Computed example of a mutant assay.
Amino acid sequence: MPTRSEVAQMVDHTLLKPESTPAQVAELAAEGAELGVYSICVSPNQLPVTVPGGVKVATVCGFPSGAHQSEVKAAEAARSVRDGADEVDMVVDLALVKTGRWAEVEADIRAVRDACPAPVVLKVIIESAALTDDEIVACCEAAERAGADFVKTSTGFHPAGGASVEAVALMARTVGGRLGVKASGGIRTAEAALAMIDAGATRLGLSGTRAVLDGLDGSAASADPADEGTLGAGHSDTADY
């Protein structure tokens, strides 16, 4: 079983509520550094943000619907990088996915990739809970062709739900280690986090990071939805990222 510090280094410690305040983001950053996470993930309007301890800064693009023109997503991503983002998590155009327009899905992702070239890390959110297995595979293949670094299960905002072990395993098999796999959405316990890692997740999107890590220590058998971290109004028990 991975150690607490090893799991922490897989975590994007996340606060994406639209009503989040700069004070809450500053608290997220301090908590992320304390917990030893890989990155914090915040909305573009909260950039730039200073994070102590070398923690990376991630943001989102075309969030949460993905229903934006590609040039708008590209401009948003480029602005976020100028504002200090190390990583960008973009949402695919689900209308294109559901109609099987895979060349256009790839072009949408590539537009963002071109706007934020390496070393910026690009993660592609596919909303796996809203897709068939064939659509998950095709989305992952399009993301790889377009030069993405990760595929990611969910925004945490879609009514279809968040991450599942089955979706993570399918995504991991499809990308075969060539891309990372980020599990995000509804991961509230140590047990759930470990199941995602066992299925092939190489990054975790968590809003209740402290509760998950405490569970690894055996000090908390599961995360209490009333104690989703220490950020008060910034978190909820229904939206996990």
Rank of each mutant, 00 (worst) to 15 (best):
E87H: 05
E87D: 11
M90E: 03
V91A: 03
V91Q: 01
L94S: 13
A95R: 15
L96D: 08
R101K: 14
W102H: 12
A107N: 11
R110Y: 13
A111Q: 13
R113K: 15
A115G: 09
V121N: 01
K123H: 07
K123A: 06
I126M: 09
I126L: 12
S128V: 00
D133S: 14
I136Y: 00
A138H: 07
C140Q: 00
A142W: 04
V151S: 00
K152S: 00
T155M: 08
F157W: 15
H158A: 12
H158D: 15
P159Q: 08
G162C: 11
G162A: 04
A163P: 09
E166T: 15
L170R: 06
M171E: 01
A172C: 11
A172S: 12
R173F: 08
R173N: 10
T174K: 02
K182F: 06
A183Y: 01
G186L: 10
G186Q: 06
R188L: 07
R188Y: 07
L194Y: 09
A195K: 11
I197L: 14
D198I: 08
D198P: 08
A199F: 10
T202Q: 01
L204I: 14
L206M: 11
L206S: 09
S207L: 09
T209Y: 10
A211V: 09
A211L: 14
V212E: 09
D214K: 09
D217W: 11
